[in-house]
Amino acid sequence: MKLTVLCDNNTITDVYLTGEPALSFFIEDSGKKILFDTGYSDVFIKNAKALGINLLFTDYIVLSHGHIDHTGGLVHLKEMYKKAEEEGFSFKKPTLIAHPLLFRNVYEEPSGNIGSPLKQETASQFSDVILTEKPYELTENLLFLGQINEKTSFEPLSYAGVSKDSSGNLTPDFSPDDSALLYSGENGLSVITGCSHSGICSILKEGKKVSGRDDFIDIIGGFHLLDAGYERISKTGEFLKKSGIRNIHPCHCTDFTAKAALLKYLSVTEVGCGSVFEF
């Protein structure tokens, strides 16, 4: 599996791309092309073009959760496909995979709606939308985990804004749609995550449950450890080390303090726009 970072908070030395506080990866595996999250704006499209990546032939669009820093680019993706059709360019209609709650509105002051700016009906105009709580196989080795049901005691869920419950009442929103990808490689399991609102260690537990394997070797994505306390970071490091993780690629919502603290337990690799990794 080859993974290219199209969008992240960071840029890296001598790779002249644009960054923003958001995330988007381009994944290639078993002949399939997968766009994982779409960032906040059209930055991921511009960076993909600069890197020679043609997003018009994407097989899958996978969304980790509905927050706008991961789904905002859907608006620009829609325009990209529309323009291609109007100008007679060939393209492939992708399949969009996400949790059933992804398209809900989430309100936070003073920003307003921080959920996906594009709703399911509009997304269906340029993609085949599949919303599922169950794991979904993208390739022989790459799996969308769906609902994260496993929990750890040291990863309390935090809410961002409010959303309507089944009765129409506004309640704190704990990102129930948050999910991740699991890659089963020859050397072990790797996790590709967007923001890990579910808890990065909880995601690993879910991956173990779903796959029946526990030979984890790597993680790339947001660990949701921004401004996390010492106790949570240390317990996270201990958990990852005991899980057999050799190396991690924390980015997006993981600050320098967390990365530095995790170095005590395992190797930490720098990530930025244009980074390319093979798993």
Rank of each mutant, 00 (worst) to 15 (best):
A48S: 12
I61F: 07
G52W: 00
N9P: 00
I192S: 08
I53L: 07
Y81L: 02
E150Y: 00
M80W: 12
L142S: 08
N9C: 07
S158Q: 12
P117A: 02
E20S: 04
A22N: 03
G115V: 09
K2Q: 13
E206S: 13
I219G: 07
P100R: 07
I217R: 14
I130C: 02
Q125C: 03
G244S: 10
S196K: 07
I248F: 08
L262T: 04
V15A: 11
E231K: 02
I12Y: 01
G115Y: 09
L266I: 15
H65W: 06
V162L: 04
N113G: 04
L263W: 11
Y136Q: 03
K78E: 12
L145Q: 09
S166H: 09
L204K: 04
V268K: 09
G194K: 01
H99Q: 10
N10V: 07
D227N: 14
A50S: 14
A260N: 08
F26T: 02
L240H: 01
S166N: 11
G115A: 06
P135N: 08
V62L: 04
N10P: 00
G115M: 12
S163I: 03
I97C: 09
E109L: 13
R104T: 13
T11K: 14
F279Q: 01
F91Q: 02
P94C: 08
V271K: 02
S275H: 01
Y230T: 15
S243G: 05
F26K: 00
N47R: 03
I217K: 14
T13E: 13
T193L: 01
S211A: 13
V129Q: 03
G229M: 11
G39D: 05
F279S: 05
